[in-house]
């Protein structure tokens, strides 16, 4: 450091200047296709990103990866006549593994016998307790509870979700997590096949 005082600052400024120039150079090289295109968004999150780094939410959104997890939801299968059956059997594993204990499940009972039947009468998740850890989805044996991708949940009131708000279709689930859904469907089909095989 015996040389000129201020050289270090100039060096710093040269980095800033380079980055300043890059914003325009990179913009120009895209010929106007840098913004509001999927390719442009992907570029800004890639190893080659340079220049303007901003993804302009809400017009542009960073695509979330398949494993992304936000508040959980319940998956229902749609029957041929549009009837909705929740996959949930109210076995309670999600409630038992939930670290902040934000899941409440009321089991249905058979009106005739009074015994519990595998269908939740009420399913409540307090989203203001939920820590989005994903353990419920990870350990659910029926693929009935999954982590959502929808993060645009801001509201003017507190967020306590009941089963109507939580239910989303299996199609939606497949659309947000195609790889997982395919793998789970295959596993379920194999299991069902082996069960019928044993039954015969």
């Amino acid at each position: 450091m015996s040389d000129m005082v201020g050289k270090g600052i100039l060096k710093s400024l040269s980095v800033s200047l380079k980055r300043f120039a890059e914003t325009y150079l990179d913009d120009l090289s895209w010929l106007g296709k840098r913004y509001r295109t999927d390719k442009g968004i992907a570029h800004r999150g890639s190893k080659d990103a340079r220049g303007i780094f901003t993804v302009q939410y809400p017009e542009e959104k960073i695509p979330v990866p398949e494993e992304f997890r936000f508040v959980p939801f319940l998956v229902y299968d749609e029957g041929p006549n549009g009837e909705k059956t929740l996959r949930c059997t109210s076995c309670g594993i999600c409630a038992k593994v939930c670290p902040p204990q934000c899941i409440w499940i009321v089991r249905s009972t058979d009106p005739a016998t009074g015994r519990p039947i595998p269908d939740p009468a009420k399913f409540t998740i307090d989203a203001d307790l939920c820590m989005n850890c994903g353990l419920c989805a990870e350990f659910c044996p029926f693929d009935a509870i999954k982590m959502d991708h929808d993060y645009e949940l801001a509201s003017f009131t507190r967020n306590v979700y009941d089963e109507t708000k939580l239910s989303k279709s299996a199609k939606y689930y497949e659309s947000i997590r195609p790889v997982n859904a395919r793998r789970e469907d295959a596993a379920r089909a194999a299991k069902a096949a082996s069960r019928t095989g044993q039954g015969e």
């Binding site: 809400p58 508040v71 989005n132 993060y151 645009e152 949940l153 801001a154 509201s155 507190r158 967020n159």
Partner: peptide, 17 residues
Amino acid sequence: DVYVPGCPPTPQALLNG
């Protein structure tokens, strides 16, 4: 005034809020 759920909400969720 506004509640933003999530733990933590992603920056985009905050912008939404």
